[in-house]
């Protein structure tokens, strides 16, 4: 038995080469996520925030692994658990010697994105539906398998659209039930629910159970009341301080509020 299969395609190598070639074809650079990647006339590559396209006085980095520090915190110093969130900080430029360094830096800015970009382009990206993913969850995440289709749809709209994640959502509820949402305009494919989504789905399952235990479908659930109260108190104090990005147990979490917008607003404004 051969230990490895040299005849099989090495996806990491092919995607590195294909990405570098794609970048090389466009002298003005390619936009990918929130960055612009450009081949330098002098050789090598440059990555910078797309909003810094014409900026000078950027902090210059030449180590591809510096991309990890660049992508770790937002401009405001908040931790970024999801690298495809549209909150990459500005003010830096990565100058990289070759396509290996380019791939390495890209894998810190957008982990595994160039492999998925390449596989999608080749028509070979395998996707995993929510139901398949949920079926293999265990421990505290096991309960996500009990989410209704409707709750999965709303969770995906709340958690995955471009306002909060720049990936293009390619997975579905199951093979016969497509997601009905804005899947995203960007180049980074999302082939499977990520750990942030599963964690959010776990919270949505709590919401759904509350819904099931509330006899009148138009009555507010205890959780909805708590969230409204927290919102009123925060607004009244003059400062609505949002919870951290993946702090789904806190009322003032953006994705949680996006979910409430989909499920609570129709109760509050039944005439619309």
């Amino acid at each position: 038995m051969s230990r490895t299969s040299p005849d099989r395609e090495n996806v990491a190598v092919s995607s590195r080469e294909a990405f570098a070639a794609w970048v090389g074809e466009a002298p003005e650079g390619r936009k990918f996520g929130q960055v612009v990647v450009r081949k330098l006339p002098s050789g090598g590559y440059e990555i910078r925030h797309a909003s810094d396209a014409g900026s000078e006085n950027l902090e210059v980095h030449t180590n591809p692994r510096d991309a990890r520090d660049i992508s770790k915190l937002t401009e405001a110093g908040e931790y970024r658990p999801l690298k495809s969130s549209p909150n990459l900080r500005r003010g830096w430029v990565l100058r990289l010697a070759d396509d290996r360094e380019l791939a390495s830096a890209m894998n810190y800015l957008y982990p595994a994105a160039i492999s998925h970009w390449y596989l999608l382009r080749e028509g070979r990206l395998k996707t995993t539906s929510f139901r398949e993913n949920a079926a293999r969850q265990s421990g505290i995440y096991e309960r996500v398998r009990y989410l209704s289709d409707e709750a999965v749809q709303n969770a995906a709209r709340a958690c995955c659209e471009d306002e909060v994640c720049l990936k293009k959502t390619l997975w579905d509820v199951d093979e016969n039930t497509p997601l009905e949402m804005e899947r995203g305009r960007g180049d980074i494919p999302c082939p499977e629910p990520c750990s942030v989504f599963i964690s959010f789905a776990r919270r949505v399952r709590y919401f759904e159970r509350e819904e099931e235990n509330t006899s009148d479908g138009n009555a507010l659930t205890p959780g909805e009341r708590r969230d409204l109260a927290a919102l009123v108190e925060a607004a009244a104090s003059g400062e609505v301080k949002m919870a951290r990005e993946a702090e789904f147990e806190k009322p003032l979490n953006q994705r949680r509020m996006r979910y409430r917008r989909l499920t609570l607003l129709p109760k509050l404004r039944p005439e619309e």
């Binding site: 230990r3 490895t4 040299p6 090495n10 996806v11 990491a12 190598v13 995607s15 590195r16 658990p81 999801l82 690298k83 791939a103 894998n107 982990p111 595994a112 492999s115 998925h116 596989l119 082939p191 499977e192 990520c194 750990s195 964690s199």
Partner: peptide, 19 residues
């Protein structure tokens, strides 16, 4: 990582080595 990216699900797609 389990809770961060790259996930275990996708990391091997980024590895060039055969071993």
């Amino acid at each position: 990582f389990w809770k961060e990216e790259p996930s275990m699900r996708h990391v091997l797609d980024t590895v060039e080595s055969e071993e």
